[in-house]
Computed example of a mutant assay.
Amino acid sequence: MKLTIPTWLTLLRILMIPVLVLVFYLPYAWTNFASAAIFGLAAITDWLDGWWARRYEQHSAFGAFLDPVADKLMVAVALFLIVQGHPTPWMAFWAAVIVGREIAVSALREWMAEIGQRAKVRVAMIGKVKTTAQMIALLCLLYSVSPNTPFTAIWMGAPIFHIGDWMLAIAALLTLVSGVQYLHAAWPSLREDERVAREQTRKKVVDR
């Protein structure tokens, strides 16, 4: 299997995950900036590998599989770090909504691919807006909830922590809406597959 540049960028993003965890807990004043910078670099590689694959037609089945895995792993680990750094019920709830939706939608996409209906659960515009809000939220929160950083860091007159907190809430709500849209798009196929399964079971009983 030949590894293309987009795939190498995706693998680099996965390698950044343990680095992010390590840097987040280092006992230095600059770790908040470094944690946010690592996550921001991962987000850039996410955009870059997609652009490179489209621009130079370097698509691969392995890359198509690995790219969403890398994205979900990075987001999940960042959320776990943030909840540990600021363990409040609401922060845990938003994180659980986002991670739970990703697991559910991934399972839905896999099932739809098995029955040849993957195209019905493509990423919609609201998903892209959700991703943007989520990236901004995680950048702000990684910067402001590091063990060595006070929550009072300011950007353009507003506390960075509160910007991230509100953006995470918005991202979680958009996550729920986009998840419902995915389910709505897949529902006819779900019903049809259930009908076919019932007919096959009935036929087996009759044949016996």
Rank of each mutant, 00 (worst) to 15 (best):
A64W: 03
A64T: 09
F65T: 14
L66Q: 06
V69G: 02
V69R: 08
A70G: 10
A70V: 10
A70E: 08
A70D: 09
M74K: 01
A78F: 02
A78S: 14
F80H: 10
I82G: 00
V83H: 01
H86Q: 12
T88W: 00
P89S: 10
P89N: 05
W90G: 02
W94E: 04
W94P: 01
A95Q: 03
A96W: 09
V97F: 13
V99P: 05
V99H: 10
G100S: 06
G100F: 06
R101P: 08
R101N: 08
E102C: 12
E102H: 07
E102F: 04
I103P: 02
V105Q: 05
A107N: 06
R109W: 11
W111A: 12
M112G: 05
E114G: 15
I115L: 14
G116H: 10
G116A: 13
G116R: 13
R118I: 15
A119T: 14
K120G: 04
V121A: 05
V123A: 15
V123Y: 07
A124K: 12
A124T: 08
G127E: 14
K128V: 05
K128L: 07
K130C: 02
T131E: 07
T132Y: 10
T132Q: 11
A133R: 07
M135N: 12
A137I: 10
L139E: 02
L139D: 01
L141Y: 00
L141A: 08
S146K: 00
P150L: 12
A153Q: 06
W155E: 03
M156W: 10
G157N: 11
G157V: 06
A158W: 09
P159M: 05
P159V: 02
I160L: 12
F161V: 02
F161H: 10
H162T: 15
G164D: 11
G164P: 06
D165C: 05
D165K: 07
W166S: 03
L168H: 00
L168S: 07
A169S: 14
I170D: 02
I170V: 15
I170L: 13
A172K: 01
L173Q: 09
L174I: 11
L174A: 13
T175Y: 08
L176E: 03
V180T: 06
H184M: 09
A185I: 01
W187S: 09
P188N: 13
